[in-house]
């Protein structure tokens, strides 16, 4: 294992976050706060409680989830796509590193940023509503696992993309709609039965539900099912990244 390489990649990626602190941290915190203010105020004035939880507090886990999923994807996809775009990926390909070091370095850095952003949003939400986290360790576990999973997904996206358009198409056309339709701002139990069934095909429902359970001990699906879904997604992404490095798909001809 090349630990120096892991440190080099991780340190460089974290330094990039510090160079672009406004884009990396302030922007997602600001947009989430706006979501919180607009949705919390507009809808919260009509829906006072969902499953015994004030509406303002109810949407906090969903908002954090929305932020960490989009940030994880954009950070890790950009981290691997930009060297491909500039050509500096030659160095990574000629270095004595396997997919293990590359994944720990790039995905670890992207996930770290997401966890930091998630915690900052959580702290920001605490300024607006009275929050009580029933299972902080479970909340942290979900936060980390989802950040890692979506950072892996973003890494795959960055390798697959051969243009800036492809890089943004999946987050905008797939992830964002799935998140909005995945119970971020509502409980799926509020939907008509047919839409409740359809919603169960949306993987984001399981992520938001499990994460919300850690806060309020109520969820749309069993927390064990949510956990299993997160682990399954993580393992699939890990396998795909392993396959990319084994075959050289789009990175090594």
């Amino acid at each position: 294992m090349n630990f120096h390489a892991i440190r080099a990649i991780y340190r460089t990626e974290m330094a990039r976050m510090m160079r672009t602190v406004v884009q990396s941290i302030v922007a997602p915190v600001l947009s989430t706060s706006l979501y919180f203010v607009v949705f919390g105020s507009a809808i919260g004035s009509r829906i006072t409680e969902i499953d015994g939880v004030g509406y303002g507090a109810f949407i906090v886990p969903g908002l954090i989830m929305l932020a960490i999923m989009t940030e994880s994807i954009s950070n890790s996809s950009f981290a691997i796509y930009f060297p491909k775009f500039t050509g500096t990926i030659f160095e990574l390909l000629s270095a004595p590193v396997s997919f293990v070091e590359v994944v720990i370095g790039y995905v670890g850095a992207a996930a770290s940023k997401s966890v930091v952003i998630g915690m900052i949003i959580l702290a920001t939400a605490g300024l607006f509503v009275d929050l009580h986290i029933a299972h902080p360790l479970v909340m942290l576990l979900f936060l980390v696992l989802i950040s890692v999973s979506f950072s892996l997904f973003g890494f795959i996206l960055g390798v697959w993309a051969d243009g800036w358009e492809k890089l943004t198409i999946v987050p905008v056309l797939v992830i964002m709609p799935l998140t909005f339709l995945g119970g971020t701002f509502y409980s799926i139990s509020m939907l008509p039965p047919v839409w409740q069934t359809i919603s169960l095909f949306n993987p984001v429902v399981y992520l938001v539900s499990g994460f919300r359970w850690a806060f309020f001990e109520n969820s749309d699906v069993a927390v064990a099912v949510s956990f299993a879904m997160v682990m399954a997604f993580l393992l699939v992404c890990l396998f795909v990244v392993y396959w990319i490095f084994k075959t050289g798909y789009k990175i090594r001809c």
């Binding site: 080099a8 990649i9 990039r16 500039t86 500096t88 030659f90 160095e91 004595p96």
Partner: peptide
Amino acid sequence: ELPTETFETPYDVCRFSRGLFGK
């Protein structure tokens, strides 16, 4: 070709390369 990083400094990219190659 000239595939270089854009926003980094010569010192930082050299330090990165050294670490990447296991030193």
